[in-house]
Write a protein that binds this DNA or RNA. Structure first.
Length: 439
DNA sequence: TCTGGGGTCCTAGGACCC
DNA sequence: TCTGGGGTCCTAGGACCC
């Protein structure tokens, strides 16, 4: 927690719905619901007019239609949201270089890096007002709610206090007075499951939460969540604004209007998703080592499977093949409601050839020994012997570390077909010919 | 016609290594 | 061939957020 109110949180009001109303005057003043319009859709954003009918985000669209049959139901125009979001984020970055977007419609700004005469409540309040005015201008009429405080926690809670079109600045020293009477669910990270656990031990408000020791909270919620909540309950929060957060995973998933049972259809859908994921990896110039699938069954239970490759890949066929293999292990005879493919363990796409200059002591060995080494190493790594290794190398190189040294196997590219082993070398000549480890 | 899609972070257990 | 501890990696699932 800082001594001055230097963290600002902006949240655009009913963002998707507001963009629709901005672009289509006939929708202004009327209930608008943006989200999935299919049989299994849910509401992403409801305009304030729709909210008066009890429609809110995450509600099923079917329920929303029941509550507000006259609303306009729209599936959304993401490029328009992205454009509006970009205008706002650019605006924020003109105020301070330290901007952390949380989503299209939300961001933290660190005002300690902004050009301000001082960081008094008066001064940051004036900045907040001006910001709201300029958000209105750069977006062609959208409003945002702004919260300013001495920490992320306080700024975020503050922006929610006077929605829509609000501005709340929490003066330094007032943090605990603000939090104590509130429900524990105002703390980001306290969702239904955590709230229920806390309720069972008689904790409803932040003040109640303060009554628990860190040990008690850790016992109840686990180490990270428990000690984190112990601090936040006391308004202790020194998380910094992180302008550049790296992507950790890329995924695609689809819920189908009816459950699918046809395995061949499902495999084709999986292939398509693998292609979409790969396309996004390539656009971002990244690749990934871990391929995951997600399957939601007819009863809404969800299973996931993943497999980690020896090297990062952005190869459609390889990712699709791994996805299919993982899928084949599952019993989906009851029907599949949702299917998804994801890639994590991301790395820069352009990989240096780590082994290019490492050949000084390299010793060439016969192909037979190479194949044996690959087979042994692949068993060692838990792969099916032989088959995946060549593809997984993806034209780079591949290292197997053992207690006795490092063995490098080089491949030609796998893009034009199954790769071929080009050479085999060891950093220590004593290792060649390589002896496969015992099973 | 209950329950999206894109993510992040955490936990727990097992394998493996030293 | 007895016992153990720590660290890392991997996998599956869960909670949470917008």
């Amino acid at each position: 927690m800082r001594s001055e109110p230097t963290i600002l949180h902006v949240d655009l009001d009913a963002f998707f719905a507001s963009v629709e109303q901005r672009d289509k005057p006939s929708l202004r003043g009327k209930p608008v619901v943006v989200g999935g319009v299919g049989g299994r859709g849910v509401v992403a954003t409801a305009s304030y007019e729709a909210r008066t009918f009890g429609v809110h985000s995450a509600m099923s669209t079917a329920e929303a239609r029941r509550r507000c049959p006259n609303a306009a139901f729209l599936s959304g125009r993401f490029h328009a949201y992205r454009d509006a979001s970009r205008a706002v984020m650019d605006l924020l970055r003109s105020i301070s270089p330290l901007v952390e977007p949380l989503s299209l419609d939300e961001a933290f700004v660190d005002l300690s890096a902004a050009a301000l005469p001082d960081l008094s409540v008066t001064s940051v309040s004036a900045l907040g007002r001006e910001l709201k005015q300029r958000v209105h201008e750069v977006t062609g009429g959208l409003s945002g709610s702004v919260g300013i405080g001495t920490s992320k926690l306080i700024a975020k809670i503050a922006s929610d206090l006077d929605k829509p079109d609000g501005l709340v600045v929490v003066a330094p020293g007032m943090e605990q007075d603000l939090l104590r009477p509130m429900q524990v669910t105002v703390i980001p990270g306290v969702g239904p499951a955590t709230a229920e656990r806390l309720r069972r031990v008689g904790v409803h408000t932040v003040e109640d939460l303060e009554g628990l020791t860190e040990e008690e909270l850790v016992r109840l919620l686990g180490k990270a969540h428990g000690s984190g909540l112990h601090a936040l309950a006391r308004a202790r929060d020194d998380r910094s604004v992180e302008p550049e957060r790296e992507t950790k995973s890329v995924s695609v998933e689809d819920t189908y209007d009816t459950d699918h049972v046809d395995k061949r259809l499902l495999e084709a859908l999986l292939d398509r998703q693998a292609a979409k994921v790969t396309e996004r990896l390539r656009r971002a110039r990244i690749s990934g080592r871990t391929v995951s699938i997600k399957v939601r069954l007819h009863d809404f239970s969800t299973v996931s499977r993943s497999a980690t490759l020896s090297a990062p890949s952005d190869d459609v066929r390889q990712i699709a093949r791994v996805a299919r293999r993982l899928f084949a292990e599952l019993d989906v005879s009851g029907g599949v409601r949702l299917l998804g493919v994801g890639v994590s363990g991301l790395a820069d796409w352009i990989q240096e050839d780590l082994f290019a200059d490492d050949e000084a002591t390299a010793v060439e060995v016969p192909d037979e020994a190479t194949e044996a080494a690959i087979a042994a190493a692949s068993r060692h790594r838990g792969w099916a012997p032989g088959m995946d290794v060549v593809h997984e190398a993806h034209g780079r190189g591949w290292v197997w570390g053992s207690g006795r040294g490092v063995v490098t196997v080089r491949f030609e590219t796998a893009k034009t077909g199954p790769g071929r082993v080009l050479s085999f070398s060891a950093t220590d000549p004593a290792l060649a010919p390589f002896t496969p480890p015992e099973e």
